[in-house]
């Protein structure tokens, strides 16, 4: 029953046939079919970009979170400065800076894809760092004491005792960040990344049907994010299975 609601927009929209030009994406015509494929083909880079960026940002986020939990004032200071600084930069500005600015600064050339990945990962890493810090801090200090008492090293304590528990707790938050990342990846279209939004923009320029094309774009993100959310929830259930008695 629930799934029927997904078709509601179509039925409503096709009702006003006069103003709508659904032919641009009508799969029964050759050009409509090609247009539809053109739009869908952006999915590849949207997904690749977002998943690469989230993986990197999780690693960087963790590496930034750990000094934030240290007894050392300077390490904690590093964490604070990193988080506050990175969090203050709008993602779009960071994308522009990395793509146009960084090559000049470091005299290297960065492709669109990696510029996008770096900007998204960097921006997200500040949030990941905060999520990890809160997650790790939520673990009972008895867990550290038990680890110390069986003489585990700091890295083993983190790897085998603290992080596995912390990650289970922060999984919903990490899932949110992934969804956020999928949406923010649309910004990378401004530097010419051939992802969903860019493809839609290009089609609008040639077909002059913004309403239809952008509606398809909305639906593409909607479906993608529903699928990813379902995956995250599945993972959550799986990882927490042994936590319940």
């Amino acid at each position: 029953m629930k799934k029927l609601w997904l078709f509601l927009p179509f039925t409503l929209l096709s009702g006003c046939a006069d103003n709508w030009g659904w032919y641009v994406v009508n799969p029964t015509t050759t050009s409509g079919y090609n247009n539809l494929w053109f739009l869908l083909s952006g999915l590849y880079y949207t997904v690749l970009l977002s998943f690469t960026a989230i993986l990197i940002s999780i690693v960087v986020g963790l590496l930034v979170a750990l000094p934030g939990l240290s007894d050392n004032k300077f390490l904690r200071g590093f964490n604070r400065v990193y988080v506050e600084f990175v969090r203050a930069i709008p993602i779009l500005v960071l994308i522009l800076w990395v793509y146009y600015g960084l090559p000049q600064l470091a005299s290297i050339s960065i492709g669109v894809f990696w510029a996008g990945v770096i900007a998204l990962a960097l921006s997200d890493s500040a949030f990941e760092a905060e999520i990890f810090r809160a997650g790790i801090q939520s673990i009972d200090k008895g867990q550290y004491e038990a680890s110390h008492s069986i003489s585990l090293s700091y890295s083993d304590t983190m790897r085998f005792v603290i992080l596995p528990q912390a990650i289970r707790r922060i999984l919903p938050a990490l899932g949110n960040q992934l969804v956020y990342m999928l949406k923010m990846s649309s910004l990378v279209s401004v530097i010419g990344m051939q992802e969903l939004t860019r493809k839609a923009n290009e089609l609008v320029v040639t077909e002059y049907r913004p309403l239809e094309v952008y509606t398809i774009l909305v639906l593409e993100y909607l479906v993608l994010i529903l699928i990813v959310s379902a995956m995250v929830r599945w993972l959550e259930r799986r990882m927490n299975a042994d936590q319940r008695s």
Binding site: E145, A146, L152, Q165
Partner: peptide
């Protein structure tokens, strides 16, 4: 050391709770 609150590792099975120390340390 044995603690008032046990402090077992809740995400590990009983066996893994016991083998972690010997294997890593």
């Amino acid at each position: 050391m044995v603690f008032q609150q046990f402090n077992l590792f809740p995400h590990l099975s009983v066996l893994d709770n016991l083998t972690l120390g010997p294997m890593r340390a």
